[in-house]
Design a protein around this nucleic acid. Structure first.
Lengths: 360, 360
DNA sequence: TTGTATGCGTTATCAA
DNA sequence: TTGATAACGCATACAA
């Protein structure tokens, strides 16, 4: 059967410029033709270089260089049935907490020689679903995701397709997939116990919306701490926000600081550092001294917490380690056929700084 | 020729669970068999639903649902030769400036119904190259990149492969590709002129390494401003850092504030906001009042600049717009065959805040 | 050691 | 409207 060779090397003689941009990209076929070997040999040079003699290999490699050959990953993957990329679907790429987690994921991916694609769901359910769908279609090796809601059915859909999934910074009771999270209830307790130790009796909790898992957990830990100390007559004032951003923190600060001094809490525990930074900013704007008039505890211990002009006391999560461990679980699941899902839970720790320094 | 049908629907009868995770994922072929139609019809349902009768379409769609059919993007792309994903190779995913740019890219990608993958080169040349290689192999539609060095030859390599490339936040004189950047020389000038206007005569420039394009440009603008004002006897003290991070800012602050008060600059222009925040933190730690004893100007106007306890004067770049425009150029290049490379340059503006408020 | 043939899942062309 | 078939580029099993 006469095969029509729509050659590439034929009309493009200039060795300086691999190939005119317009024409078809050269494939193994073209390389084979240029090197005067067969297609299979080129493939061997690429995948089992040891099985081809040095001189032949050299010729083939030179041909690849001349032609500017680039492997077609689609074809490769179609053939192989598997891919070597993983993805992390982040909840909010502008929150330093998640970029730090991503760094940890990247560490692990690097070691395993995988490439990592970051996707930002930006707290939008439609976007999250859209990314997961695309990732499924791309047949990536696995997906790490910090979901908006770990109970969303489309997460299960991904799992049902046989795609390895690890949920990061959230967890679910039913073990349909691995997860790596931090004990937020305990973190909330840590924060409030710290404030109680400092003698605060009226403490505000700032964060929201309450539907967010982390917020609920941290609040519940905070409540538990207050309850335990109830003999001291401590109380918790909840100020709910619409989101976990600096702007929302400012906003909440406005409300909090607007309260009559008599009833105003003397300390605030913010559900994350962004909110805490916003609150801090509002304090400065309104001339409220921190920590003298208002002590502040944040959560996450992002780099900007320590860098705030009044360094922020915060509950530290092992962000990078979170990512690393999640990636490790993913790789394990992807390689081990009879893998058992695991729920890894880290323990946070309190980092005390100036924003809660004992006055005097 | 007898075709062996390794059926999928055959052994998996439970309608509740699409397919056992172990077996091959169902393809169009399986859907066709299940729906009792031919392969081409399934394809039509997917790509030209109008060319298939309603009842048939319904049957096919039901079969897809039952089997849990997911398109194989690799095969699609192999066949089509093109992809509908773009990527943004970021210089530093932990720097809010770049995540904001990424948001802008995402805006545009969303509109065009493309998916965006974020890659973080993390300032490492090997990683940048590795990502670009993979992206090339994946035959993505195009690549946005903030390169470590826009003169690196591997960037040209990507362009030579016919891959649409838009350089973000850097530029090169030769127009081998599009670029979207901000006039950093002007930005540097803005910052320093502001300080000169406030009466400062001894100004520090903090940033580095000097090899980074932005640093060099901002410094040169700063120098020009000082030179213009030389009649006033102003001078510029350069404090070079190893990077553009908060930690480096603190570090530089230590050095700067260690100078004898007499010779110490009364104002500092930092090459970015992270460095400025570090400096600010150091000032607070050492009890140096801002702006009374040291005025500070940052660069980028990231959200944390305004949120700093002493709100930071900064040179604002249209971060999101930068990303949007870059993505738009990329799409244009990808679709328009006789596209002309463009160098878009935005103009930054100064946002004055408390960190340079005139004392008194 | 090198060459040949086949199929991965999809889409498009063309014939029915 | 629907069905059969040929690519897309690569990797592998197998033959030479």
């Amino acid at each position: 059967m006469a095969q029509r060779f729509t050659g590439v090397g034929g009309t493009c003689e200039d060795p300086g410029m691999p190939q005119a941009p317009q024409m078809r990209a050269p494939g193994v076929k073209d390389v084979a033709a240029a090197a005067g070997v067969s297609l299979g040999t080129v493939s061997n040079v690429l995948n089992r270089p040891d099985r081809v003699s040095a001189p032949t290999r050299a010729r083939v490699e030179q041909a690849m260089l001349d032609l500017g050959f680039v492997r077609n990953e689609s074809a490769r993957q179609l053939r192989a049935g598997r891919s070597s990329t993983v993805a992390y679907v982040m909840l909010d790429a502008t929150n330093p907490f998640f970029t730090d987690v991503a760094q940890g994921v990247e560490d692990a991916a690097d070691e395993a020689d995988l490439s990592l694609f970051l996707c930002n769901s930006d707290n939008r359910i439609a976007r999250e679903r859209s990314y997961l769908d695309r990732l499924l279609q791309q047949r990536v090796m696995g997906v790490l995701v910090t979901p908006i809601d770990p109970h969303e059915p489309h997460l299960d859909h991904v799992v049902a397709q046989g795609m390895p999934v690890v949920v990061v910074d959230r967890r679910r009771d039913v073990a349909t997939h691995c997860s790596v999270s931090v004990d937020d209830v305990f973190g909330g307790r840590l924060a409030v116990e710290h404030l109680l130790d400092l003698g605060h009796e009226c403490i505000a909790f700032i964060g929201g919306p309450a539907s967010v898992g982390q917020v609920a957990d941290r609040l519940s830990g905070a409540r538990a701490a207050v309850a335990d100390a109830t003999g001291g007559g401590a109380e918790l004032v909840v100020v709910e926000t619409q989101g976990m951003t600096v702007a929302e923190g400012r906003n909440a600060g406005e409300r909090l600081l607007g309260m009559a001094r008599k009833h105003r809490p003397t300390a605030a525990f913010c559900a994350n550092d962004l909110v805490a930074l916003g609150l801090l900013q509002q304090c400065v704007a309104l001339g409220v001294r921190v920590p003298e008039e208002l002590a502040i505890v944040g959560y996450d211990d992002i780099e900007f917490a320590a860098a705030a002009a009044v360094p922020l006391t915060s509950v530290r999560q092992p962000r990078r380690e979170l990512g690393r461990r999640a990636a490790a679980l993913l790789l394990e699941e992807a390689s081990d056929p009879d893998h058992q899902h695991q729920q890894v839970v880290f323990t946070p720790e309190l980092v005390a700084r100036q924003s809660t320094r004992r006055p005097g």
